[in-house]
Nucleic acid binder design. Structure first.
Lengths: 119, 119
DNA sequence: ATAATATTTGAGCAATGGCTCAAATTTTGT
DNA sequence: ACAAAATTTGAGCCATTGCTCAAATATTAT
């Protein structure tokens, strides 16, 4: 029969491979990749890290990052759509903060990884 | 003097903002973004998740993901360069595995985030 | 040696991404 | 009502990216 295995003799049998495929393809992987992708841009990571220290307005984030207000606003729109940040309008300003602290934890873990990778 | 603050009256003073900027711009942020970016692609995330279950060869990963061997190899090259995976050549096959388990932990935390985000 | 298998590599291509710029929107101050 | 300030939005542009395809490399089997 057609075993669909590329290379023989093979350490992983078909059932094992199928089990792994099912576990890997589980729902939520795509969504998880989206979250990681959001964290995977220096600008957005700076924004999130800044907001993890203190809520602040778009303009502050622009100064902080050295980018235009427009650029920041575009990124915030993305982050808002993904529920990573939330914005509260006060007067003519909008104060952004982290939507919850899962993200802060993930950033912390990421930092830890980098530190140990270097040390 | 030119206070370089966009919007007045302002809740965060200049020193506070400068302190945050320093903390955000710390060395390692760019590197951290690179790691997150690596996790931020469905194909690579599948590869890493599969390898977190069991080491396997390029061909298995291709079958598992439904992509070409070439595509997988290109991604593995990237992941190897970032020290996220390592490959051991055995015969004409190369068996890949996670370089360490930091990444596995980060994926686990990511999954947890998604789960709680939905629940 | 020759052929077959497993992987790597480079070029090229369509799609995506992050920014800028200009214009629209919303709110405050006079 | 009008101007100024803070943010949002859409279009456009260049760089990056993830794949395919073809060819090269390395190892095993005959």
């Amino acid at each position: 029969m057609d075993r669909e295995l590329c290379c023989e003799p093979h350490p992983l049998d078909l059932e094992e491979l199928e089990r792994i495929r099912a576990e890997v393809d589980e729902e939520g992987l795509w969504e998880m990749a989206e979250v990681f992708k959001a964290l995977g841009d220096p600008t957005r990571l700076k924004i999130l890290k800044a907001l993890s220290i203190s809520p602040m307005c778009v303009c502050d984030l622009a100064h902080l990052t050295g980018l235009s207000v427009s650029a920041i606003s575009h990124q915030l729109r993305l982050l808002r759509a993904m529920r990573l940040v939330k914005g509260e309008k006060i007067g003519r300003r909008v104060f952004y903060s982290l939507h919850d602290d899962h993200i802060a934890m993930m950033i912390k873990l990421g930092q830890q990884h980098i530190r140990e990778e270097r040390g």
